[in-house]
Amino acid sequence: MTEAIYVQLLYLACGAFLLTGVLVLWRRDLSAIIRLFALQGLALGALILVLAAYQRDLALALVGVGVGGLRAGLLPYVMRRALAAAGAHRETRPLVNAATSLLVAAVLAMLAYAISRPLTQLAPGPTIRAVPVALTVLLVGFFVLVTRRRALSQVVGFLLMDNAITATAFLTTSGVPLVVELGVSLDVLLAVLVLYTLTDRIRASFGGTDLDELRELHD
């Protein structure tokens, strides 16, 4: 693979990663949001595979397949199950409307660029230059988490953040050591399962997954 094509493919994967992340802000339909999340998982897997192909690293390629499988297959599957059980298919009344969220995302992109300055200065290179993309998705995920009122949207926000962190890890260092990578993936999977169970319980005890209903505890 030549340098030019490698960089081109890498950035294309990053672009898809960013686009899917931002589109989550736009859609209200929860099943569409989950579909976007699955696409983002694919983009992330592709990103790792491109890195692996360039570095001719079989282990990295396997990690890429694993990460892609987890984030494009297993996690969306769990969320679709939760959605089917929950019955509510739309994000109602987000705290910030879609138009404003999209403009906020633009500001977040600038912020991400500013934050990643030290990294780009330390090691300028094609992969490091893509780090702002990952950080933008991180901030967008955080924004989704804070402003959405459905349990499932919050889970997606959390997972967007996690995808972004994983992307950062692979862009900066081609991944953390394997033990940590395994631990991280396991933890994420378990966290989603825990949240899945809790969504179930919220529905059982509050009669819906609208988190505005959660106001038993306050000072």
Binding site: L18, L19, V22, L23, W26, N97, A98, A99, T100, L102, L103, A105, A106, A109, T136
Partner: peptide, 12 residues
């Protein structure tokens, strides 16, 4: 909303 989305795409 749609147009804000396209504006964001352009900015990105």
């Amino acid at each position: 909303e749609l147009l804000a989305g396209s504006f964001l795409m352009a900015l990105l």
